[in-house]
């Protein structure tokens, strides 16, 4: 178990190194010049060269990358070109908002997706099943920015039930969570349905029926724990999908999280922030997958971590 964990962490570190390298390389070949952005259009060639030298951007690529890495290992992600603030501070300040939004979205996904999937599987072949599956299809086909704008228009602008945007109370959280969670809810309901149908066909379900157990117990105690396994693995992968989704959702609702930070940084070619956010996201994805793998044996004792 400890050996497994150690190995996975080494793997994770390697993947993060790869992500850092690829992102750094991409930004290096960037045609847009960050120095020009900082210096402004009117700057002289001398000023530009000075700034370039100050930032170390006149050094060879590998030297720049090595310097970035060594700083990173000391917890230093550099300073934002534009805001002159520590990237780590910027990200840390916005992290709670993003985490809150993701938690809300995961809750929304699981609550909606699992319920719909289980009901559809149990009512398989009926109108209820078909209706739920059409809903789930619409869920996976709806662009998040359209959902966001529509929810905003109907529930905030027209009905006034929720604030139009911003951050602070539970009421601020509702619409963004639903917007971010609706896509996953669609996928989960479809997965849960087919997983549940598979499990209900298994021999041990027949055994449970042969024992004379009540239907409710067969579903809750025998079918559900077996059917939920593939979903657990999905939640890990989902973190990656969320990382993209927050850029859109935060921009629609003016949610002050790292999605907005990243988007603004990309528009202003603020390389240290882009690097920082990408790495933090990759970290979240890798850890999410690891966590999913670590939880799995508790649900299915057949899974051994080796």
């Amino acid at each position: 178990m400890l050996a497994y964990l150690a190995r996975r962490l080494v793997q994770a570190a390697l993947i993060l190194l790869g992500v850092a390298f690829v992102t750094f390389a991409l930004l290096y070949i960037l045609p847009a010049d960050p120095v020009r952005q900082i210096a402004g259009r009117a700057a002289t060639a001398q000023t530009v060269a000075n700034i370039r030298h100050q930032l170390g951007l006149d050094q060879p690529f590998l030297v720049q990358f090595w310097r970035y890495l060594t700083h990173l290992l000391q917890g230093d992600m550099g300073r934002s070109y534009m805001q002159k603030t520590e990237v780590a501070t910027l990200i840390a300040a916005r992290m709670p908002a993003t985490l809150l939004l993701m938690l809300g979205a995961i809750g929304c996904e699981l609550a909606l997706g699992l319920t719909m999937g289980v009901i559809a599987a149990l009512k398989r072949g009926t109108g209820v099943d078909q209706g739920l599956m059409i809903v789930s299809f619409v869920g996976v086909s709806a662009p998040q920015f359209v959902v966001g704008l529509l929810l905003l228009y109907v529930f905030a602008v027209q009905l006034g039930w929720f604030p139009i945007g911003g951050y602070g109370s539970f009421r601020h959280l509702v619409l963004p969570s639903i917007t971010l969670g609706i896509l996953g809810a669609g996928w989960y309901s479809r997965m849960m349905r087919s997983s549940m149908i598979d499990v209900l066909r298994q021999d041990f379900i027949r055994t449970a029926r042969a024992k004379g157990l009540a239907r409710r117990r067969i579903i809750l105690r025998h079918a559900l724990p077996n059917a939920i396994l593939p979903i657990i693995a999905m939640i890990g992968i989902d973190i990656g999908v969320f990382m993209g989704g927050i850029v859109v959702v935060e921009s629609v609702y003016g949610w002050p999280g790292i999605g907005q930070l990243a988007f603004q940084a990309i528009q202003r070619v603020d390389i240290p922030i882009i690097m920082g956010v990408t790495l933090v996201s990759a970290c979240a994805i890798v850890l999410g997958n690891l966590l999913a793998d670590l939880i799995a044996p508790f649900i299915d004792p057949r899974i051994k971590l080796r």
């Binding site: 298994q202 021999d203 041990f204 027949r206 055994t207 449970a208 029926r209 042969a210 024992k211 004379g212 157990l213 009540a214 239907r215 105690r221 025998h222 724990p225 077996n226 649900i299 299915d300 004792p301 057949r302």
Partner: peptide, 28 residues
């Protein structure tokens, strides 16, 4: 009806199946 059958199943009539590998719930 299913409800009455359930009282008999496992109680007065019991059954064992061919595949012991798959006939038991793997997570219990």
């Amino acid at each position: 009806p299913e409800r009455r059958l359930r009282e008999i199943r496992g109680n007065r009539i019991a059954m064992i199946f061919q595949e012991p590998m798959t006939s038991l719930n793997p997570v219990m």
